[in-house]
Structures are given as C-alpha cells and as structure tokens.
Design a protein around this nucleic acid. Structure first.
Lengths: 241, 241
DNA sequence: ACGGATTTGTTCGTATGTATA
DNA sequence: CTATACATACGAACAAATCCG
C-alpha cells in the first residue's frame, strides 16, 4: 500500500470524528462504535484509530471507559455567573428551555446542627423547609433544599409555586440582599442522583448558600445539587495587588 | 431495663459519635466499626444505632456505602475566595501548611483545539506548557496545567521554581489583570486522580481559567484539578435587582 | 456466584515514508 | 548515496475491566 504523508492518517481520522460530532451524527453522551468496528468503518487500522482517540481524549472531546466503550463528552450547557445571585429559572430560560418545578415538600421541620449554626437559630427553633426538583424541558437539573428560621416568618407563612425570594418579600417583608456561597462537589448520592436521573459517574455540583437580609441577618440557607454534566459556574476574577 | 425518655437514645448515640469525631478518636475518612460491632460497643440495638447513622448521614457527617461500610466525611479544609485571583501558595499557607511544588514538565508543545480558541493562537503557533503538582505538607492538593502563547514570550522564556505571574512579569513584561473562571467537576481521571492520590469516589473540582493582561489579551490558560475532599470555593454574591 | 462475550488497554513484530547527518 | 533515527501505519496476540444471562 502506498501512503500519502502530506497529513498523517490519524489526523484525518480526528477530523472525521469531530465532523461526525459537529453534524450531530454522533450526539453528546452517545457511545462510539467499538474500536474494532469503527476502524473497519473508517478504513484504518485499530492502532491508527486509537491514536486519534488518544488525542481526542486528551482534548477532552471523548471519554474512554475500559471494558465499556468510548463516549462523546457532554458539554455543560447551563452556565451561571456567580457574582450575581442568579435565578435558576432565568438560567434555564437563557438556554431557551422551559423551566418547571416539582414541589416535593414544604412545611416546618427540625433543624440539623449545621442549620442551627448557619442560620443562628435559637434553642428549639424550627425551620421552614422546602424541597424542590427543578427541571428544564422536563429534564431534572437541580435538587434544592431551602431552610428559613421560623421566627422570621409570619405564622401563616406558606410557599406555593412562587419564588422563595418573592414569598419572603411578600409574607415577611424581608429583602434578600446578598449571599455567601460555597461550591463543592460530591461523587454520588443515592437519593439525589436518582431523582436527578444521573448515572453513578456523574458527580453533583453542590452550591451551599447563606442568604442575608438588608440588616445582615441570615435568612435563607440553601443547598443546591446540580447535575455536573449540565451545569457549570463561572466567575470574573480581578487581581488585587 | 428501664428507659429514660427525656432524650431518646438515638440522640445520645448521635452525640457520642459526634464526640468521637471531635476528639479525634474517629478520624475523617476512617471507617466506623460494622453496625453489629458498633451497636455492641455503644450498648444499643442495631436499629437504634441505624437511626442515629441515618440522621448523621442526612447531616452529611458520615457516608454509608452499601456492602462496604460507614465512613467519617472529610471536610474540605482549604478554601479559596473566587472574587480575587488567589495564589494557591497563599491558600495553603493560610491553613498553616507548607506549600511545595513538583515541576512535572516545562517547555513548548502543540496546542489543542481548545487552546487555540481560548488563547486566540495564530496558525502553527505553539504554547509554552507547564505541568505542576502542588502540595500541602507534602500531600498532593492540585494538579495544574498552564499554557501561554509562544508569540507573547521572549525567546529564552523559562520558568523554574517561581510563580508564573512573576515569570510573565519579569521575562515578558506582561501583567495579568483579571481572569474568567469556569468551575466544574469530573468524577475521576485515571492519571490525575492517581497523581493526587485520591480514590475513585473522590471527584475532582476543575477550575478552568483564562487570564488576560491589561490590554484584554488572553495570556494564560489554566486548568486546575483540585481534590474535592480538601478544597472548596466560596463567593460573595450580591443581588442585582 | 460464575462463565462467557464484549470492549478497551498494552505490547509485541513488521514495514514504509520523512528528515538529517 | 548511505546510515540512522523517528514518526506513521498495520496486524496480531494477550491482559484487564465490564456486562449479562
């Protein structure tokens, strides 16, 4: 066989695969054909294909799993700027998707030790607890736990189908002014991962926030669990010298 | 046996376990005794112990793995504020630990397609590539990949043992002024997780940053992979109405 | 709990084109 | 032109991880 070394064959294979992804022939998350089959399709040796895959993996375009297969990487499509308190509703709308919320639980509950500390609760004070699953076009995206100190709320405080910020404003006359956010990640959570409908190998981004009112009192303690294959956060960072 | 129902027994068990963690008898990451054995130790039934564990898991103090065991959760000890461009060295020093850096690679390399886009590279332009492993008291904490466009640097540009910001300032007269940061997470990375010495179930926090100079030109493209059991990020978020 | 099938990971051997001294 | 080194390309065999009945 004669070779044309103007451009090496594995580079051509890389372009072919990228094109298949661009054109939608290979969708994010989808499995590529097995190396054996794919190499026949593309009319190159398995080794040449593997060299292409090696580079695509380095470029973070595909993900290879030993004994399982090779997959097109999903890129997070929802992005939230962290400088501002973003509304998850807006984040979803910005992507042209339809936001919806599944209300799992509302009502008073006993606080955990964390809650007591973060919300500066008094002895025996309960919290108003809200658990929600928020979706984009019906696909679960975030699981939200929100807690508010009982004493800050009116007796008949209730939330139904509206934003928590709005309910606090209307029912208790409280304006949220800022929040301290903490970002972390967990590998997998039995319940939460299941509710979000994501596999064992999709970690969750955890956004833990304490919201304060205009008088710097802690009002709202939020835990948000985002699907990390759908969401990323971004920040503008200034250099202070 | 007579019971004292002033406080239910499982709450006492919770306190006992928390105390063991506080006192250091149980260390973060350590496995608790099996439920059978532990319940004998604490002189309660396995069910009572399980009720305590259920709550501790809900409070995120322990982690239970089906068929494996129960573990004390590690709390991230290193925290980085995202508003400012923090130095990882400072982040480590702030915790009273000794920072050190293992230089894995420095030199020119071919850019990936991402690099080309983010750094606005010219055709055939290479990047100066730095790979480092940064440690606290000898323990790996972050794996860093940094890339700079060739054309912005002097011919004899070289980095050895100093900060990249300093080297850019000294050798190329470039001042980094701000950065756009993107936060995400990946479940596991064969090489990187191994280098950081963390298990399959510790995800990595990924901080992807593009740094700009005073003229808003992209100068430095950084990928930082943090051990998520050691590090968390925090931000102060203002409400814009 | 086990075995077999599938898939990726690794390492050989071999051959050819390109670049350089 | 030769000798050498290197990157590219193909094929084959085996190891290791995973999946499924």
């Amino acid at each position: 066989m004669e070779y044309n070394y103007q451009t090496p064959r594995y580079l051509l294979v890389i372009e072919q695969i990228k094109e298949k992804i661009q054109s939608g022939e290979l969708e994010p998350g989808e499995r590529l054909p097995s190396e054996m089959e794919f190499s026949k399709q593309l009319r190159v040796s398995r080794n040449t294909l593997r060299e292409a895959l090696r580079i695509l993996e380095e470029e973070n375009i595909i993900l290879r799993k030993h004994g399982v297969g090779t997959f097109v990487n999903r890129k997070p499509q929802f992005r939230g700027g962290l400088e501002e308190l973003f509304s998850i509703t807006d984040m979803i709308k910005r992507e042209g998707k339809e936001p919806s919320t599944e209300w799992l639980l509302t009502g008073y509950a006993e606080p955990h030790s964390d809650d007591r500390e973060e919300l500066e609760l008094k002895e025996d004070e309960r919290v108003y607890l809200v658990k929600r699953l928020r979706k984009a076009d019906g696909e679960p995206l975030v699981y939200c736990i929100d807690k508010m100190p009982e004493r800050k709320l009116s007796n008949d405080f209730e939330i139904k189908g509206e934003s928590i910020f709005e309910a606090l404003q209307r029912d208790a006359g409280i304006t949220i002014s800022y929040a301290k956010a903490d970002i972390n990640t967990i590998a997998y959570h039995q319940e939460i991962s299941k509710m979000l409908g994501c596999d064992r190998d999709v970690p969750l981004l955890v956004l833990k926030q304490i919201h304060y009112d205009l008088d710097d009192h802690p009002i709202l303690y939020s835990l948000n669990f985002f699907r990390s294959d759908q969401v990323s956060f971004n920040v503008f960072r200034k250099r202070m010298v």
